[in-house]
């Protein structure tokens, strides 16, 4: 039923359900907030995670909102526990998006982390300060074109030993 309701309410939405308990929705980037609030009103009020995938060949970043209902009894007519993967793609160069904190306060640290690791700017986020990292990186480290091995050789390999006897 959820499938039909989504199809009638929203235009350009693609729905796939190939694996068990897993509903994949794709939508253009301006539709996410309305779909999120629609699902929240339906009872899918538990935001598990916001993830990001770097599709470097398509020059796009994909934001993935994963949510489900806390209890399936909360959703009328629900027969199985459903995990909803809501996906949208944004441009890879200078990526910007809007925050979803107003709908889901749990989104705050996830958006902060995506900002740090992928360089996505979430407009309206109260604090996009560094969360996990200590150094500044030219390319955000979770992007596919950031080569960790090369970085390690450049940065840590160039630190000299302190004492003479360690050199041999």
């Amino acid at each position: 039923m959820l499938k039909q309701e989504l199809e009638t309410t929203f235009d350009n939405i693609t729905i796939r359900m190939e694996k068990k308990n897993q509903l994949e929705l794709s939508i253009t980037k301006d539709g996410i907030m309305s779909v999120l609030s629609f699902l929240k009103n339906k009872g899918y009020d538990h935001l598990h995670v916001i993830s990001c995938v770097d599709w470097i060949d398509d020059k796009q970043l994909e934001l993935v909102y994963i949510l489900s209902a806390y209890m399936k009894q909360d959703v009328p007519g629900e027969t199985e526990q459903l995990n909803i993967l809501l996906k949208t793609r944004i441009g890879r160069d200078d990526p910007k998006y809007i925050t979803s904190i107003a709908l889901f306060p749990a989104a705050e640290p996830y958006e902060r982390e995506i900002h740090e690791m992928f360089g996505v700017d979430f407009l309206g986020h109260p604090r996009l300060t560094p969360l996990l990292l200590e150094r500044d990186y030219d390319i955000p480290p979770f992007r596919k074109d950031f080569d960790t091995k090369q970085y390690v050789d450049d940065v840590f390999g160039s630190v000299p030993s302190v004492e003479g006897e360690d050199k041999n």
Binding site: Y137, P141, T148, V152, F156, V159, P160, S161, V162, D166
Partner: peptide, 17 residues
């Protein structure tokens, strides 16, 4: 020497340095 994190960008490799 870094152990299993030999290619991690956020851990140091030789503590004695």
């Amino acid at each position: 020497n870094g152990g299993m994190y030999y290619d991690s960008y956020n851990t140091i490799k030789h503590l004695e340095k």
